[in-house]
Amino acid sequence: MDSKTKKLLKRNLSSLGFHTAAVIIGFLMLYPVLWMISNSFKTTQEIFGQNSFSLIPGELLTENYTRGWRYNGTTTFTTFFKNSFIYTGFATLGAVLSSSLIAFGFARIRFAGRNFWYTCMFLTLMIPFQVVMVPQFIIFYKLGWVNTFLPLIVPMFGGVPFFIFLMVQFIRQIPVDLDNSAKIDGCNKFMIYSRIIFPLIKPALITATIFSFYWRWDDFIGPLLFLNKPKLFTVSLALRMFADPQTSTDWPAIFAMGTLSLIPVIVIFLIFQKYIVQGLVTTGLK
């Protein structure tokens, strides 16, 4: 065996090892989710019975889906999905765009009071939502925004501290020389932001988009407080309505709708993932 084939064999072996490990651990990671999906086709007895760990349903009960989708007969999941898309879409757009603007301000401009405001931003992250929930509700109620999507969407245009911090970290990874040379070329601050920084922090923007979409999609307490009418419900809110401790719970329908509610989140991930995988074309740097 010459050294070349040896090397190739070694690489193949290590590749095989990698894939084996990734698949086995991946299955463990995914099992609970697969179980959830399989439950969406089972009967209640199957879900909780002796054989409940099985991933293969006795027969494919698709009526779990139709029954779940029907919800209470008056309002269906068609409405809930539509509402979730509206709320999640606008909120994510607002959160990501605003956060990038704000992050640029914090990361690249030295203005008086910068550290103070940055600290304030962290304070809003640390204070438990439970104690600001009531006063916040009162503000939105006084604004007449209850039973609209506004209290869920508008605050997102004020940026999300998590994303702002993330983007600040990414922007600080970009050499300042780039800004300076752009300035010499006649770019103003906004042009530096939009033409240089914004494209260069794409991995952060993409990550923020994926997170924001999921967080808003999954958000329960916001919709619970601000949306009272069933026709305004989001998917995550409707899902929680299935379970009532005092009466019987339609578990197969919960699992069915729970499975469906994962799809948009996964699709968004798949759409945006490739921009993370591809990474940066770094020719513009240095």
Partner: peptide, 8 residues
């Protein structure tokens, strides 16, 4: 600076 962080 304040213009950029204005939304926040």
């Amino acid at each position: 600076g304040y213009a950029f962080i204005a939304p926040w």
